[in-house]
Simulated scan of single mutants.
Amino acid sequence: MKSVKNHLSLVVALLSILFSMQVFFIVERSIDAYKVNLSNNYSVIAVSKKELSSDEFKGINKIISNAEELSPDSVIKRLTSDMKSTNVELLKLTLPKFYKLSLTYYPTPQEIKKLRSDLLGSGSITKVEDFSHNHDTVYKLLLLFKKVVALFAIVVLIVTVLLIFKELRIWQYKHNERMTIMGLFGAALWLRSAVLFRLAIVDALVASFLAFGVFMYLSSSAWVAEQFNNIGINVLIFNPIEDFLIILGVAITISILLASLIVLGHKEEA
């Protein structure tokens, strides 16, 4: 029972690290997907003295993906209900050109400022409406959310690593006599500590496969998919190959590293 208890505590500790790490990946992917969604709905309005093509706008700043000219007909219709058709056409010629600019991705506040500066510095464009206040608020909220999740993952990592280190240290104390006897008979350090490394690696494998099962279940859960659909994004929750390899690598690396530190510490004490 004690052996199972020791294994269980290490597995749960490793599982908490893997879970917080994967949650961070999901949040990062969610933010990237939400940025794509925002970029499809976000646009900049530019007013030009002359007609400009989409390629000319792209030449001003590479972030511009497309430029669509806005028709002034609806505005003119409201203002000139009693005007003659010839006067209406003349008014159209004298009006500036309005363009809706679509962007390749959701930009940072600094990129928005540069875009505005480049457009106004082109000579033809007289006014730019970039909705910077709303854009900055949304962008800062996304960054804040990402930083909070990252901070949470780091805190979980630190606390859990200390817990794993303590558990392995306790295991070492329990087997200190056996390791000392093996040392007296000339056993190499790696041989004396083989059981400790085996414990660390086995628990890392168990935690990795448990994490694999949990996230595979979540990735196929209809309830989770519905939550993402409610905010209009589609997110890859778990990649069975890439994510699992990362999880497995992190779990084994942490376990072996902590076990190595304990072994080296034991060597110094000897």
Rank of each mutant, 00 (worst) to 15 (best):
F98M: 13
I63V: 08
S219W: 03
W190C: 00
G232Q: 08
S39C: 04
S124W: 03
T126W: 00
K62D: 11
R78Y: 00
N239Y: 11
F19Q: 03
D118W: 01
S102E: 14
F145G: 12
A150S: 10
L119H: 07
H7G: 09
K127A: 14
S3V: 03
L144V: 06
M1Y: 01
I231C: 02
I237S: 06
Y139K: 15
E51W: 00
N239S: 12
V75A: 02
L196I: 04
F238W: 06
G249H: 02
N239P: 00
A153S: 13
F131Q: 08
M83V: 03
A33S: 15
M182W: 03
L142W: 07
T80L: 12
F238L: 09
L15R: 15
R198L: 11
N40S: 11
I201L: 10
N6G: 09
Y106R: 14
F19R: 14
V148Q: 10
S54T: 12
W223L: 14
V149A: 12
K100S: 03
F209T: 08
V206C: 04
E56Y: 02
I170Y: 01
H133Y: 13
I31D: 13
I64D: 05
I45W: 01
V250I: 14
K5N: 07
T104Q: 12
R116A: 08
A153Y: 04
W190T: 15
I45L: 11
F98V: 10
L184N: 09
F25C: 09
W171E: 13
F98G: 02
E56A: 09
S65D: 08
T108P: 01
N41P: 01
Q110D: 11
V161L: 12
S9Q: 04
A222T: 11
F244C: 08
S193D: 08
F165G: 10
L168C: 02
L257K: 03
R198S: 12
F228R: 15
K146E: 14
T94H: 05
N40Q: 15
S219I: 05
F19P: 05
R169W: 06
L115W: 09
K62T: 12
K77W: 00
A211W: 05
V75D: 00
S54V: 00
V155F: 11
S85G: 02
T253M: 07
P96L: 13
I45D: 06
G123A: 05
H133S: 14
L163Q: 13
